[in-house]
Write a protein that binds this DNA or RNA. Structure first.
Lengths: 333, 333
DNA sequence: TTTATTTACGAAACCGGTTTCGTTATAATA
DNA sequence: TATTATAACGAAACCGGTTTCGTAAATAAA
C-alpha cells in the first residue's frame, strides 16, 4: 500500500503542497473552504503526517525521554504513568529507555540524545553513575534534563525528589521505637542522592540514640545481593532491623528470612522504600516508606515541559520536594 | 551550542558531505585513510547523526513499538526486558506505548504508526478491543505486527502465546483436586483470546467433573472490580475457588478476603496468572500460573525482526506457543 | 601507446513536511 | 480613479542525512 503524503493530497485537490500544509496547520492564509476540503480529504484517506519530516525541518521532535534503571519496579512504573498523563495532553510522545543500572548504557543513551531525537529528558540515574558529565554535556547542547527521584548533586538541573533525609530518619526512629538496636541500612550506591540522603537520615537517628551504624551497599545483581543479605543475617551479630532503600532488596530479605529461618518481625524488622500495592498482603505485611510516584512523575513532566516552552526558565526554580509516607505494617510491629 | 552535522564535518576536512556520509557508513568507495580521518573527527567532535534525517530518506526508522495495556504489571515489565534485549543487539530502538486497556487509545496509537514512525509493532491488545480493523489496517500498510500474549483471532499476524487452554484446564483441575466445587473464573474480556482460551480450559475441567461454571468479567477499573469481587464473595453461594486470569485481580481478592473476612485457603482458594516475584511471600503465598514472560518477549521481538528483514516471510510460520508453569503455593494448599 | 578498469571522490536529487517570499486577484481607502 | 491593503495561494528553499550518477586521476590490460 502506497503511503499517502502531502503531495498526494495536493494532486487530488489540485492545490500546492504548501497550501495543504498550511491548511492542515490551520494557517490564516488559507480560506475556510479550502481548509475544509483538505481536512475532509485527509480524514477520508487516513492521512498521517510523517513525524520525521516535521522533526527534521522544525528541529523539534515532540518526544521526551524517560531514562530509568528498569520498569519492573513499582515506583518507576507508577511514575511512568504520571509522566505519560501530562505528556499526552501536551501532545508529547514518551520514549522509555532502560539503563539496567548500568553506567555505560546510560552514557550511550544520553549520547544518542545529542542527535535531537528528543526535546528533553526525565531521568533517574543508575546506581553505577558516579559523575554527571554525560548529563551536563546534554544540557550544554540545549536538551533540558529534569531529575526525578534519583538525582546527581553535581549537575545543575531541575529535580523532583522526596524528603529522603526525613524519611530515612523517621523510618529509623520507627525501628528504634520498635526495639531494634542493630539496624542495618541497605543502600544502592554511595553516589546516589537518594541513597545518601536516606542514609544520612538513618545515621542521624542512630547517632542521636547512640547506636552503631551499619551501612551496606548492594549492586544491580540480584544474585550478589542475595549473598550479601544472607551473609549479613547469618552472622552472630546480625541486625535486628533493616532499612532497605529500594524495593528489590525487600524481596530478598523475605526470601533469606524464610530460608534461614528468621522470623519477621520477631527476629528481624524490616522497612523498605517501596510503592508495591501488595505490600499489605505480604507475610508479614511490609512496612514501607511510600513515595508519591504518580505525582512525582506528573511534577517532573510538568517541569520539563515548562523548560521546553520557555527557554529562559531557571531550572533551580522548578525543584520540588514531595513528602513520602511511612506506612507501618506487620514487618515492624 | 551549535549542533554538529555532516556538513560541519565536511567543511572541517575539506571533503563533500557525500564523502563524509559514505565514510561513516564504511562504503567501499572511500579510501581507508579518508575513513580514518572522518571517524577520528566525528569521535572528537562527538558527532551524532540525526536519526530523523536518515529515517526520512531511508524510509526505515529502526524503531519498533511495544503496545501494551500498562507497565505496572509483572508480566509486561518482564516481557519488555525480553524484547529490549533482542532489539538492542539488532540496533533497534523500542517505543513503549500504553493503552491503559482503552480501545480508543489503542486505535489512536496504531493510527499514528501509519506515518512510518515505527518499522514494526509488538502488541498485547487491550481488554476493550473487540475487533482488529485498526491492526489490520496497519498491516495492510506494510507495518508488520506480532502479537504476544494477548492476540486477536480475526487478525492474521504472528502470535507468541502461552498454552492458555491447557493452563486454564490444569489450574482448574488443581482447584478441584484441592476440594473446590464452586469455582469462579475471573476474566478480563470476552474478546480476548487469553481470556477465552483460559476460560475454555476452565470450562472443560468443570464440565468433565460435572461442576457448574461461573464466569465473571472484570473491567479496567480497579474500583469496579473490587465491587464485583466483594459482592461475589459476600453471596451465600460464594465460590470456594477462584481462577483469576490477570494479576491485578489477585490483589483485590486478597484485599476482599482480608476485609470480609474470609480465610485463604480454608474458605477460598485462589490461582492467578501472574509473574510476581513476591508471590511466594504473600500471605498466603499465591499459587500462580507463571508465564515465561522474558522468553515470550524475546521470541516476539525475534519474530518481528525476521518479518522486518525478509519481507516475504509468512507470519503464520512464526507462531509460537510457549508453555506456562503452574506453581502450587499456599493459596490452594 | 592506447584503451579499459578501477579508485576515490563530488554534485545534486531525494525523503516529506515547513516556511519564507513572492504573486495575483479582489476589496478597501484616498 | 488611482493607490493601498488584504486575502488566498504557489514556487522554492530548507532540515540533515543517503544515494545515484558523473568524473578525474591512477592503474591495468591490450
Amino acid at each position: 500500500m502506497k503511503q499517502i503524503n502531502i503531495k498526494a493530497l495536493a494532486q487530488e485537490l489540485n492545490l500546492s503542497v504548501s497550501t495543504i500544509s498550511k491548511a492542515l496547520r490551520d494557517s490564516y492564509e488559507i480560506s475556510d473552504e479550502t481548509k475544509h476540503r483538505v481536512l475532509e480529504l485527509a480524514a477520508r484517506l487516513n492521512y498521517t503526517p510523517n513525524p520525521y519530516a516535521s522533526s527534521l525541518r522544525g528541529k523539534k521532535s515532540r518526544n521526551i525521554a524517560i531514562v530509568i534503571p528498569e520498569v519492573a519496579d513499582s515506583f518507576f512504573s507508577q511514575a511512568i504513568n504520571g509522566i505519560e498523563s501530562v505528556a499526552k495532553v501536551k501532545g508529547y510522545h514518551v520514549l522509555i529507555c532502560l539503563t539496567h543500572e548500568n553506567y555505560e548504557h546510560e552514557q550511550a543513551i544520553l549520547k544518542e540524545f545529542q542527535s535531537g531525537r528528543v526535546d528533553g529528558v526525565l531521568m533517574s540515574v543508575s546506581s553505577e553513575t558516579a559523575n554527571g558529565s554525560h548529563i551536563q554535556e546534554l544540557i550544554t547542547r540545549d536538551v533540558p534534563v529534569v531529575f526525578f527521584d534519583r538525582a546527581l548533586k553535581d549537575v545543575s538541573a531541575a529535580r523532583i525528589v522526596t524528603d529522603d533525609f526525613e524519611s530515612g530518619y523517621k523510618a529509623t526512629l520507627h525501628l528504634i521505637e520498635q526495639g531494634c538496636r542493630h539496624i542495618a541500612f541497605l543502600g544502592v550506591s554511595s553516589r546516589l542522592s537518594i541513597s545518601n540522603d536516606r542514609m544520612a537520615g538513618y545515621r542521624k537517628a542512630m547517632e542521636e540514640e547512640g547506636l552503631p551504624v551499619h551501612e551496606t551497599y548492594c549492586s544491580a545483581s540480584a544474585g550478589e545481593n542475595y549473598t550479601i543479605i544472607r551473609e549479613m543475617l547469618q552472622r552472630p551479630d546480625r541486625p535486628d532491623g533493616i532499612l532497605a532503600s529500594v524495593e528489590k532488596l525487600a524481596t530478598l530479605v523475605y526470601q533469606v528470612c524464610a530460608e534461614l529461618p528468621l522470623a519477621m518481625p520477631a527476629d528481624v524488622k524490616l522497612v523498605c522504600f517501596s510503592n508495591l500495592g501488595i505490600a499489605a498482603m505480604l507475610y508479614p505485611s511490609l512496612t514501607t516508606v511510600t513515595q508519591p510516584a504518580f505525582e512525582m512523575g506528573k511534577a517532573a513532566a510538568a517541569a520539563l515541559l515548562k523548560l521546553l516552552e520557555k527557554k529562559n526558565t531557571d531550572p533551580a526554580g522548578l525543584n520540588m520536594v514531595i513528602p513520602s509516607e511511612l506506612i507501618r505494617r506487620g514487618s515492624t510491629l
